[in-house]
């Protein structure tokens, strides 16, 4: 059921200040343990409660613009999680349970070397190096969806 305008404004006040720091899972209001495939249900639940269309008349133009911008972040998170889900969540983003996908089969050998380096960099907290290695891995194997998902996660988490 749609939220009241008051609920929507309270949500905006809460998420706007740290909009850039929220992870995809946070945007979709999912726990870190959420199963792959939970993204669609979560996205629908948010759409049902606070899609901008629901407030065309209830909010001012400025408030509606604020809502659309924050809702757009939710869409972005859904897009990233959906494509990651399709690849069974890459190990790079440290999922709650071991990744069920084997990276050795998700990319070619040259890309795998770079992917391992990225994982190493990430363990030491060097995100810039991790990103660079992932990008080089993508250059080595542009078809790997796992790598693209990993890059999207890195970009979004920063």
């Amino acid at each position: 059921m749609a939220w009241t305008p008051t609920q929507v404004l309270a949500w905006l006040d809460e998420v706007e200040p740290r909009a850039d720091g929220r992870s995809h899972l946070e945007w979709l209001e999912l726990p870190p343990t959420a199963a792959p495939g939970a993204a669609q249900g979560a996205y629908h639940a948010i759409a049902r409660t606070r899609h901008p269309d629901l407030f065309r008349r209830a909010l001012s133009e400025r408030e509606l613009d604020r809502l659309t911008r924050m809702y757009a972040r939710v869409s972005n998170a859904y897009a990233a999680l959906r494509s990651a889900d399709a690849d069974a969540r890459p190990a790079l983003v440290a999922p709650a349970k071991p990744a069920s996908i084997d990276p050795t089969r998700a990319m070619n050998a040259r890309a795998l070397v770079l992917y391992r380096r990225a994982e190493g960099a990430l363990r030491t907290g060097d995100r810039a190096a991790a990103r660079l290695n992932i990008k080089m891995a993508i250059a080595a194997d542009p078809a790997s969806a796992l790598l693209r998902g990993a890059l999207a996660e890195l970009d979004a988490d920063d």
């Binding site: 659309t68 911008r69 757009a72 972040r73 869409s75 972005n76 859904y78 897009a79 970009d155």
Partner: peptide
Amino acid sequence: LEKNLPTPIERTR
């Protein structure tokens, strides 16, 4: 922004 992403959407690079 790639094809077939949900809208409205905003992305910064």
